[in-house]
Design a protein around this nucleic acid. Sequence first.
DNA 1: CAAATATACATCATATTACGATGTATACAA
DNA 2: TTGTATACATCGTAATATGATGTATATTTG
Lengths: 121, 121
Amino acid sequence: MMYICAMYSKELLKGTLDIIILKLLEENGKMYGYEICQKVKDISDGKILIRDGSLYPILHKLLKDGMVTTEEVNLGKRVRKYYSLTAKGKGEKKMVVAELADFMETLSKIVFSDGKTSAAI
Amino acid sequence: MMYICAMYSKELLKGTLDIIILKLLEENGKMYGYEICQKVKDISDGKILIRDGSLYPILHKLLKDGMVTTEEVNLGKRVRKYYSLTAKGKGEKKMVVAELADFMETLSKIVFSDGKTSAAI
DNA sequence: CAAATATACATCATATTACGATGTATACAA
DNA sequence: TTGTATACATCGTAATATGATGTATATTTG
């Protein structure tokens, strides 16, 4: 079977998937798993793909930690499970997004400087 | 024993340490392990700390992969090992830095948008 | 002078994380 | 009817960073 692969080294994604999920849930109020995957794919122009093998374990952990609540909706004979942030989840989202912003700024200082202090080559 | 802890969740750092090392080596021409740790600490104001338990395995891997060469210098009775980028290493650095820039831009689109398309809260 | 701290390397076991593989099921399009 | 999309779940595996541990020398400070 063919898999469309995410554009980025999957290691870069580490530690950011839960942040992405928390942010999308806050922004959209209520989402189900499959919808989250599609949304991330859309916004990132297919460059970031959350696999279901990554997504559902994270959602289960968020539920266990009290960051989200669930609500099941019947679709004919299938069940769709909607997730939404709790107050705790909203606080957590604010924290991790701020941490990510700070980290990215710091990382940029190291990796994207021109290095003009050294001799030019 | 007391450990000064890095400010960020260590998961965020994943996949970025080798990029940081490649970038610093290119910028400074030639560095030894301990120096790299200190440099990162300095530039990041102590927010990013590369542990020696992380650093040396990465340097050994870069050597194994032909990204760097080493040169040993005697300091009295101790030995200091300098690392510098090979041509292959310089190419790799360019690649991974570009990938990181692209990734950060894409991630920003998802995580740092205001979400004005949804109802304001 | 002794003790602590800094310099400088190395290796291993462990925890975390994302993912591929696998499984179950329904709906719809070719 | 065959494949693809929707929609969930779980397990084993691989990659990575780190704490712990070990070995030494050099310097600073009480």
